[in-house]
Nucleic acid binder design. Structure first.
Length: 272
DNA sequence: AGCGATGTTCGCCG
DNA sequence: TCGGCGAACATCGC
């Protein structure tokens, strides 16, 4: 489930339940999940360390510890982060387990093994190395900055929203919602959009991500909690547009399925 | 039984 | 150089 709103939930989970807690034991259950660090080294580096600070950049979660470095987490397509009580069975597909002193544990879960966990000394350098653009909810990303960033690009709107090097945090699911709210076709060329439209795209991006966080992105009841008029709950076969009732359409873009309403998000002649 | 899935990366092509 | 595509990664659920 991990796009920006989900990773933000993980971050808040840690902020509430994992800060200033000392790690008594680290268990790397599947070493392949580690990003260029040996399991032994990872375990040694963190055993006895206390967690001090959380940071999120796009879909990456960074956790600072008291030995002067950071734990880096990315969740791939099927990742999760869970706090459990000692004695409680950690979830299936837990790949790394951190047991806290005084009870409780943090489980890094990844079914498909597409996520990565690693260590870094420098959070900024880590993001730079990965060419991560500005976080989609960064306070300094105002409307004007956003427009300057995307205006004139020959790319399709969906491809641009999902490019982590431009704006970090938006994936396949949320780009569909943002485009639906803006009533833009997934293939709409950014260079063909005027500033007013790009402004609406920005507004939808911020609103959708904030609403998703606020309504508990990734939780069991999340889809039921979304405001009426959101695409996400209908993003499936037989799904109907919540605005006009038309059957939703799909499109393959770079091997990802894009869901949209062909009536509310019509293609201009150029995209056909 | 086969296909698709909330991500990233890399090589290829126009 | 840019932008898009498809495969690969690994695994499960419908």
């Amino acid at each position: 489930m991990p796009e920006l709103p989900d990773v933000e939930r993980y971050r808040r989970l840690l902020e509430t339940g994992g800060m200033h807690r000392k790690i008594a034991k680290v268990s790397v259950i599947n070493a392949r999940i580690l990003d260029s660090v040996a399991p032994k080294k990872f375990e040694t580096a963190l055993t006895g360390a206390a967690l001090l600070e959380t940071r999120r950049r796009g879909k990456h979660l960074l956790v600072r510890h008291d030995r002067g470095g950071w734990i880096t987490m990315h969740f791939g397509m099927s990742g999760d982060l869970v706090l459990a009580a000692t004695g409680e069975e950690p979830p299936p597909y837990t790949r790394i387990r951190f047991d806290f002193e005084g009870g409780g544990l943090l489980a890094y879960v990844s079914r498909r093994m597409l996520g990565r966990v690693g260590l870094t000394d420098d959070a900024e350098a880590f993001c730079r190395d990965r060419d991560l653009g500005i976080d989609a909810l960064d306070p300094s990303l105002d409307r004007r900055t956003f427009i300057a960033l995307v205006a004139g690009s020959r790319r399709g709107a969906k491809a641009a929203l999902m490019d982590q090097g431009v704006i970090a945090g938006i994936g396949n699911i949320y780009s569909d919602e943002i485009l639906f709210q803006t009533r833009l076709h997934p293939k709409a060329r950014l260079e063909a959009l005027d500033e007013v439209t790009l402004g609406r795209l920005y507004d939808a991006m911020r609103r959708v991500l904030e609403v998703a966080i606020e309504r508990g992105a990734g939780s069991e009841e999340f889809l039921d909690r979304l405001p009426r008029g959101y695409l996400l709950p209908h993003r499936k076969k037989t799904g109907k547009c919540p605005r006009c009732g038309a059957p939703l359409a799909t499109l393959k873009l770079g091997s990802r399925t894009s869901w949209f309403c062909p009536h509310c998000q019509p293609a201009s002649r150029r995209e056909n």
